Each structure stands twice: as structure tokens, then as C-alpha cells.
Amino acid sequence: MANVARNTALISYLWTVFVLFSRTTGLGVNELLYFRIISPEEIGYIFSAAPAKDFGGDFTSSYDEIFLVPADPADGCSEMKDKEILHGQVVLVERGGCSFVQKARHVEEAGGKAVLIADNAEDNDSQYLDMVSDGSTTKPSIPALFLLGRDGMMIRRSLQRQALPWAIISIPVNVSALASFPLKQPPWTLW
């Protein structure tokens, strides 16, 4: 009986979070992709990101453990350094300086599997932007996702504080199975 009450409370909580999230962002839960940080543990949460609207590919594979590597240069507006580290990984890029398409193209040219573009407004913890094409004819084929600024800042800060070159993530994560795994969202973000 206690398990039924607990599950009912969890479902009620999730529905409330979803309704509040939908009102705040204008996006539905099915329009987002989720990933989980495995390491470092201090930011071991499930994060949400919005896929690009009219460019980039879909995840054709699920990665239980893949590196999330901060880009160098951070804005991703020129050729990536340390291509051997980025090759086959997910790359974290900061918004600003050039178009979303250019950033994704530079990551793809460096061999990245996907790009997470974090908003440069570090206090943004609720507003997703629509990443749209810049009109160029050559569009990247890797998945491109928009990450809230607060999430990106907290990930970068944790990596810098611990002098780590990358985080280990699982992507994509199926949130419809949340009841079977710990519901652990970033405490600074309401979703």
C-alpha cells in the first residue's frame, strides 16, 4: 500500500513539473532530449536540452558512457583545437559569436558525435531558444541541442573546479522510465 501511495505521489509530482515546465518554456516533454551526467558526481543530474529545429541529425545510437568535452575555443566559432580529444565525443559549446549552424559544423569537422550549445546567459534556467538554420547550404548532420545557460555554466564550473577535461554522460536518457531510476534533476532548474 505504501508503494502505491509513493508511486501516486511521484506521478502527481511529475505531472505538476511537466505542466509548470510547459507553461514556462512553451516546449513539451516530447520536444526535449535528456542526458545524465555520470561523472563528476557533484553534478550527477538528469539535464534537458532542446534539439535544433531545422538542422542537425537525430541520435541513432544510445551512449551509456561518452565524454562531454568543453570546446576550445569555447564559442565554437573557429576550427576546434584538440581534435583527437573531441573525436567521437559530445562537445559542449557556448552560445554567441557565430550561428548555431557554424558551431555544429565546426564540431562535426572535428569528429564530434553531437554538440550541446549552452546559452551564454548564465542565469537562464528556464527559457529554451529555437536553434534554426542560418541559411547556409551546408548543414551539419550531427545532433545539435540547446542547453540552458545555468546548466552549461554549472557543468563548466564543476569541470574547472576539479581540473577535469570532460564529464562522462549517458545520452539520450528515456525519461518515460524515470520511475525506475532516481529522479535527480539539477536543484537550480525547475522542469
Rank of each mutant, 00 (worst) to 15 (best):
F100A: 11
S170N: 13
A144C: 12
L164V: 00
S99N: 12
A167T: 03
L68Q: 02
I169A: 05
K103T: 06
G152I: 05
P51Y: 12
R95D: 15
Y45S: 06
A118Y: 02
V115I: 04
S158E: 02
Q127F: 05
G111S: 09
D119T: 11
E65M: 11
P140N: 01
W191K: 13
F100C: 03
A114I: 11
Y45L: 07
I38F: 13
L27N: 02
R157I: 02
E94I: 14
R156A: 05
R23N: 11
I171C: 04
P40C: 04
G111F: 06
G28R: 05
S136V: 10
A179R: 04
S133P: 04
I85A: 12
Q162S: 01
Y45E: 06
Q89E: 15
Q102A: 09
Y13F: 15
D151L: 04
V90I: 12
N174R: 13
Q89C: 06
G149S: 10
G57V: 04
P182A: 08
Y13C: 14
A118G: 04
S78Y: 09
Y34K: 05
F181W: 06
S12E: 14
V69E: 03
V17S: 01
Y45G: 03
R6H: 14
A104S: 11
W166I: 00
E84G: 05
G111H: 12
A74G: 03
E94N: 03
Q102H: 13
T138G: 02
W166R: 07
S170F: 01
V175P: 10
P186R: 07
A50T: 11
A50W: 15
L178N: 03
M154E: 08
I11R: 15
F67V: 10
